[in-house]
Simulated scan of single mutants.
Amino acid sequence: MAKMIHPIAGAIALLTIGFFWLSTVSSELLGSEALVVTVKTMIPWGFLILIPSLMAAGGSGLQLGRGWRNPLVAVKRKRMPIIAGNGILVLIPSALYLSFKAQAETFDAWFYIVQTIELIAGAVNIALLSLNMRDGLRLTRKRPAMDDAST
């Protein structure tokens, strides 16, 4: 079951973060203030999709990687605390703060400072999740058809 859940949950998480990032950039560059308010208000609601998908990807990844000594598995494991910490310590608080500020229509310097930090942290997570997906695809090509934990 983890073999099926892991790539689906990982793809959903990556697509969700990518959608948040692109929505933010496009609304800021091309949209009205009302669109920025809508995007910033909706992103925290997207956590209802993002957080469970990240948890499912992480949990199933731990289960799949158990007992593996492949260097790609080790690299993926090292990225996950960075991805999780970035999300918990930077991205979620930033999104909540920006949502609050946008709903109050307070687009001051702090809004844009936090927005910049959020975009950088989001780009980092997109990059790290993309690398994990790439490495996961490499692992599935190398892995025998049967679940062999000795690889």
Results as ranks from 00 to 15, higher is better:
M1S: 14
A34V: 01
R134C: 01
Q63F: 09
V39K: 01
P52D: 11
A145M: 00
V124F: 00
A2D: 15
D147N: 04
D108C: 09
I8Q: 08
L131S: 03
L29P: 12
L50N: 04
T106C: 07
A127T: 09
F47C: 13
L50G: 03
I88C: 12
T140N: 11
Y112I: 06
W68G: 08
R141T: 02
R141G: 02
K78C: 07
A56V: 06
V25L: 02
I126G: 03
A109K: 09
T24P: 11
L119G: 13
W21F: 12
I117C: 12
L22I: 11
A121E: 12
M80A: 08
L15C: 04
L139K: 03
A34Q: 14
T24N: 06
L129M: 10
G31S: 04
R143S: 11
A109D: 12
I5Q: 03
A56M: 10
I88F: 15
M4W: 15
M42K: 15
L96G: 04
L54Y: 07
A74M: 11
Q63C: 09
A127E: 05
R79I: 06
G122K: 02
F47E: 03
K101Q: 14
A149M: 01
M133I: 05
Q63H: 08
L131P: 09
S150A: 12
L119W: 08
R141F: 11
M55C: 14
A104L: 15
L128C: 04
V124M: 11
M80K: 02
A56D: 05
Y97R: 12
L131A: 07
L29Y: 02
L22V: 05
T24F: 07
D108A: 15
G67W: 10
V124S: 07
I92M: 13
S130Y: 01
G136A: 04
V25I: 06
A102P: 11
T151Y: 13
I12D: 04
G10T: 00
I17E: 05
L30N: 09
S60D: 01
A57E: 08
L14H: 02
Y97H: 06
I49F: 15
M146Q: 09
N70I: 00
Y97K: 13
M55K: 08
I51H: 14
A102L: 06
D148H: 06
E105V: 00
S32M: 07
D108E: 05
A123S: 05
L72C: 10
G65H: 11
L128H: 04
K142Y: 10
P93E: 02
I43E: 03
L129N: 02
W110N: 12
R134Y: 14
V36W: 11
R138I: 00
N86E: 03
I113F: 14
P144Q: 12
N125I: 01
W21V: 03
P7C: 08
K3D: 09
P7F: 07
P81S: 09
K3Q: 13
